Measured scan of single mutants.
Amino acid sequence: SEIVVAMYDFQATEAHDLRLERGQEYIILEKNDLHWWRARDKYGSEGYIPSNYVTGKK
């Protein structure tokens, strides 16, 4: 599975969105859409994140 790191904070506005915290790692579950990826955080929460807010883990 692909691990990404959040470059920016993202506040979830929709129920299906996942909040991003800058510097935290997330697991990508689905990339069915170019701009919104389904991800899981370290607490096990899942939701959609803006793909341009994250970068591949170095």
Rank of each mutant, 00 (worst) to 15 (best):
N32Q: 11
S45V: 13
H16E: 12
H35D: 09
A15P: 15
I49S: 01
L29A: 00
I3F: 08
P50A: 04
K31E: 03
D41G: 02
Q11L: 13
I27M: 11
G56I: 14
T13M: 12
Y53H: 10
L18N: 01
L34H: 12
G56R: 12
Y48G: 02
L34I: 12
P50Q: 05
S1M: 15
Y43W: 12
H35V: 11
T13H: 11
Y48P: 00
Y26A: 00
D9H: 06
K57T: 11
G44V: 01
P50R: 06
W36V: 06
E25G: 04
S45Y: 12
Y26N: 00
L20P: 02
G47K: 00
D41F: 02
Q24L: 08
R19L: 07
V4C: 10
D41L: 03
D33R: 08
V4I: 04
D17K: 15
E21Y: 10
E2P: 08
A39M: 02
E46P: 01
L29T: 05
F10H: 07
G23T: 03
R22Y: 09
Y48M: 14
F10S: 04
E30W: 09
A12R: 07
Y48I: 08
V4T: 04
Y53A: 09
T55Q: 11
A6N: 03
Q11V: 15
I3L: 09
G23L: 05
G23E: 05
K57N: 10
L20T: 02
I49F: 06
V54P: 02
T55A: 10
T13I: 14
E21W: 08
V5C: 11
I3H: 07
W37I: 03
D33Q: 08
V5W: 10
G47P: 00
G47C: 06
F10C: 08
E14L: 12
V5E: 05
S51G: 06
R22T: 09
Q11T: 12
W37R: 02
G47I: 03
V4W: 10
T13P: 09
H35E: 09
R19M: 10
D33C: 13
H16G: 15
D33S: 12
Q11G: 08
Y26G: 00
L18Q: 02
R40W: 03
Y8L: 10
S51H: 07
V4M: 09
Y53Q: 05
L18H: 01
L18Y: 01
A6D: 01
W37T: 00
S45E: 12
R38E: 01
D9K: 04
Y43F: 11
R22W: 07
E25C: 12
K42W: 05
A15E: 13
E25Q: 10
I3Y: 09
R19S: 15
S45I: 13
A39N: 02
E25D: 07
R38M: 11
K42H: 07
I28L: 08
V4D: 00
V5Y: 10
R38H: 06
G47S: 01
G47Q: 01
G44D: 04
Q11H: 13
R22H: 08
N32A: 12
Q11F: 14
G44H: 03
D17G: 14
Y48N: 08
F10R: 11
T13S: 11
H16M: 10
Y26K: 00
T13W: 10
D41E: 02
A12Q: 08
K42S: 08
W36K: 09
Y8Q: 09
W37N: 00
L29W: 04
G44R: 02
A6W: 03
R40C: 06
H35W: 12
G23A: 04
Q11C: 14
E21F: 10
M7P: 01
L34S: 13
S45N: 15
Y26T: 01
G23D: 06
E2M: 13
R38Q: 05
E21P: 01
R38C: 12
N52D: 12
Q11W: 13
E46L: 04
D41T: 02
W37S: 01
A12I: 07
N52L: 09
N32E: 12
E14H: 15
E21D: 08
E30G: 06
D41N: 07
K31T: 06
V4E: 00
I3E: 04
D17N: 15
T13G: 08
S51N: 06
E2C: 15
I3W: 11
Q24K: 08
W37Q: 00
V54F: 04
A39F: 04
R38V: 10
S45L: 12
S45C: 15
K42D: 04
G44M: 06
G44C: 06
G56F: 14
K31Q: 07
E2S: 09
M7C: 15
I49G: 02
K58M: 13
I3K: 07
D41S: 04
W36N: 06
Y26H: 01
V5D: 00
Q24R: 07
N52C: 15
V4N: 02
M7A: 05
A12L: 04
V54N: 02
N52Y: 09
G56V: 14
R38G: 02
G47R: 02
S1R: 14
H35C: 15
R40N: 02
